[in-house]
Amino acid sequence: MDTRIYLRASTSEQDATRAENELRKFADERGLKIVGTYTENQSGAKFARPELFRLLRDSNAGDVMLIEQVDRLSRLATEDWGKLKTEIDRRRVRVVSLDLPTSHQAIAADEFTSRMYSALNAMMLDVLAAVAAKDYTDRRRRQAQGIEKAKQAGRYTGRPEDKKRNEAILKMLTAGQSWSNIIAATGCSRSTLSRLVRRQKGTLVK
């Protein structure tokens, strides 16, 4: 049984590796052999996450995916969570989350007890994934309401510019880097890159 750590943060400005030491300590205390760490900066509400699916492809039946919290794995809507869970089940990967104690107990259990815990964990994962998805939706709604209120009051100025990142992007553009390479390296959106290209050409002043 091999163990693979999955680490995720929503944006490139956040530290996706923040919980790695805690997860490694957890694995060491239980004699779990870590064979890989998979890290990405992607929204948990996004189904297409390259590192998550690379972890699943690399795993064998009975291997463990170790995560800090269920919301690191999913903030997905119900349909997409169902597809991800089906893929996890198909590959027979066991999800162990620090915030789900019953998943810890299933690690060294006998076959009968392990199957019992697996059934319980499947139910708990569904509940926690649904809670995470609702929390994400609620926060987005509150953010939108706050922005709309600020706009009506004339106080909304938009998201602060990441000047350090944008300066690096402009240097990459000057050096002739392709859009695909720049997006992969910086995590910026195509709309941001397009705006910076226009600025570089002098058609946008800011």
Rank of each mutant, 00 (worst) to 15 (best):
K149Y: 09
V96Q: 00
Y38P: 13
I183V: 15
G44K: 02
R4L: 12
G158I: 08
R141H: 06
D89T: 10
L173H: 02
R141W: 07
V197M: 06
I169V: 15
A119E: 12
E111F: 08
L125N: 00
D2G: 01
V64N: 00
R72V: 14
L76V: 13
S191T: 12
A48Q: 07
T174Q: 10
D110H: 09
N41V: 11
A77F: 06
T203R: 08
L84W: 02
R142N: 05
R159D: 05
M116P: 13
L23T: 04
A122T: 15
R155V: 12
R18L: 06
L56M: 11
E51T: 10
R199T: 12
F47V: 11
I67N: 00
R159V: 14
E148S: 14
N166D: 09
D126K: 01
E40G: 05
S194W: 08
N166W: 04
Q177L: 15
A185N: 04
K33R: 13
L196Q: 02
A48V: 13
D126F: 00
A133P: 12
R72A: 05
K163A: 09
A119Y: 07
Q145L: 15
G187I: 11
E22W: 01
I183L: 11
S180P: 06
K149P: 08
A153G: 11
A129T: 09
P160K: 01
T39G: 05
R199I: 15
A185T: 14
Y6H: 00
A19N: 14
A106W: 00
T174W: 02
Y117N: 09
R75T: 07
K25V: 15
L84R: 02
Q145M: 15
L73T: 12
L125H: 02
L73Q: 02
I5V: 15
Q200L: 15
A130D: 08
S189E: 03
Q143I: 15
Y156N: 08
R4S: 07
T137V: 10
T102N: 05
V205I: 14
A129Q: 06
D80Y: 03
Q143A: 11
V131C: 00
T174P: 06
M116S: 13
L84Q: 02
Y6Q: 01
I183W: 01
R90H: 10
A61Y: 04
S180E: 14
A184H: 03
S180N: 12
T39D: 04
S103E: 04
R91C: 10
A19S: 13
N60T: 10
R142W: 04
R115W: 07
E87P: 09
R92F: 10
N166Y: 03
K151I: 14
R49M: 07
S191F: 06
R91Y: 04
T137M: 10
T157M: 12
P160F: 01
A168Q: 11
